[in-house]
Amino acid sequence: MNALEFLAGINPVAASGAALVLVGLWGVLARPNLFKIAIAFTVLETGVNLVILSVGYIRGRTAPILDAASDAATASARMTDPVPQALVLTAIVIGLAVTALMLSYALRLKAAGGGSSIEAYGEEKW
């Protein structure tokens, strides 16, 4: 297999998504600041969303929306896969919910005077 074929086989959306997932995961694992962890999670989520949508990526196809002009019967042959799009919509909203809750936790923990580093919240152990 030559390099071009190899490159053509790669799904660019999936690849960028996977890269972002790794970057986000790195942030989650390596940055002790509570807010930074939440930020890393949003990067991770964006990556996951890209990965989900990469599955519905079909080269040269349009959005799965009929416009008044086009004929319903033939239009479907030009449209891309709508299912991953529906899934991503859900995933995005859930991501926001998690982020908001995580930030509230962080704020609440900080208000209790423990600082912003996760290392300060290890009283429960062993």
Binding site: G114, G122, E124
Partner: peptide, 20 residues
């Protein structure tokens, strides 16, 4: 609250795995 935050981190990683 301290424990809950740890739970959220674990849960976040698990959801990413699940979605993939």
């Amino acid at each position: 609250l301290r424990a809950g935050f740890k739970y959220m981190i674990a849960g976040g990683i698990a959801s990413a795995l699940y979605l993939i």
